[in-house]
């Protein structure tokens, strides 16, 4: 039987992973709001964020912060490329949601396999950003990487909120999600907004991947599990609601952590998928209610 005195410690680590799920969930929402598309290549962005940073840092000696910035920019560009090459042609043909999910999942698998060929199947990691012993607060060890993850995620959520509510481009993106046709009638370049949504979610995914890699590892195949967790976070939060997705991510991270203590690590994904099923059955519109 589990030792329940570990609970606070477990919750703290669940919080960290939950933030990452939340960021990935927000990535789903940003694209969904701009286009109605559920982009399952989201996991590839997370994997590549950590992987490219690792390659630059460990193999080419690029300082970590610079490596991270380059990785985020590169993944954002890849997001735009996927939008142009995979999504746009289908979108113009008014492909169904089902076709879109399949196509983006195919893109995910292609990226995964190319990464395998390029860097092999060995897991890679990154050093923690601040190499100091963890802070002890009331008997709970709080590592500096966790502070980076939580602080970084909250900062990003705040910046995104400011972007969407204060800048003209952010407002225009929201306008596209509210009424794409009316947005076009105002001369808002709706297709450029879709590309921007892909760039933004890809950058978010990469950022999440970079934050989490020092506490775990990254490998060519970590993308899909992350995508599924981010997707569940988005469902739990009420699909299309970025803030809800972040809350959903936190909830999922905490529940998963508890499930690991209670039932063992093998049941982590069972817990996650049970949460998904539970929400689909009982409250399909999520914590905050779906955006549309």
């Amino acid at each position: 039987m589990a030792d329940w005195s570990y609970i606070p410690q477990v919750l703290v680590s669940g919080l960290g992973i939950g933030c990452v799920y939340g960021l990935i969930g927000i990535g789903f929402c940003v694209i969904y709001n701009a286009s109605g598309i559920v982009n399952f290549a989201q996991g590839a962005f997370v994997m590549l964020g950590g992987m490219i940073t690792h390659m630059l840092f460990a193999r080419n000696g690029v300082p970590l912060p610079l490596a991270a910035v380059i990785a985020i920019a590169a993944v954002a560009l890849l997001g735009v490329a996927i939008e142009r090459v995979v999504v746009r042609p289908l979108w113009n043909r008014k492909a169904t949601m089902f076709v879109m999910i399949l196509a983006t999942l195919a893109a995910q698998i292609v990226i995964e396999r190319l990464t395998l060929i390029a860097v092999g199947d060995q897991p890679k990691t990154l050093p923690v950003f601040t190499d100091r012993p963890p802070l002890m607060i009331g008997g709970v060890a709080i590592g500096f990487q966790l502070i980076w993850i939580v602080g970084g995620s909250i900062a990003i959520v705040g910046l995104l909120a400011a972007f969407f509510s204060l800048t003209k481009t952010g407002k225009a993106m929201r306008a596209c999600s509210i009424n794409r046709e009316a947005a076009a009638l105002q001369g808002i370049p709706v297709s450029r907004m879709l590309a921007l949504a892909f760039a933004l979610s890809a950058a978010l995914g990469a950022f999440a991947g970079i934050l989490i890699t020092p506490t775990q590892y990254t490998a060519f195949n970590v993308g899909v599990p992350f995508a599924i967790s981010g997707f569940i976070a988005a469902i739990v939060g009420g699909f299309g609601r970025p803030f809800g997705a972040f809350l959903g991510g936190l909830l999922l991270g905490l529940l998963q952590a508890l499930a690991i203590v209670g039932f063992g690590a093998g049941l982590k994904n069972v817990a996650a998928l049970s949460v998904l099923l539970l929400f689909l059955f009982i409250r399909p519109s999520g914590i905050l209610g779906a955006a549309k």
Partner: peptide, 26 residues
Amino acid sequence: IVLVPEGRGLFSPMSVSDNLELGAYR
């Protein structure tokens, strides 16, 4: 050429001020 469409096509959840701002997007 600007169309005020049937049903108005406002960005309903957004503020009056934001709607006006988006009209001048370009």
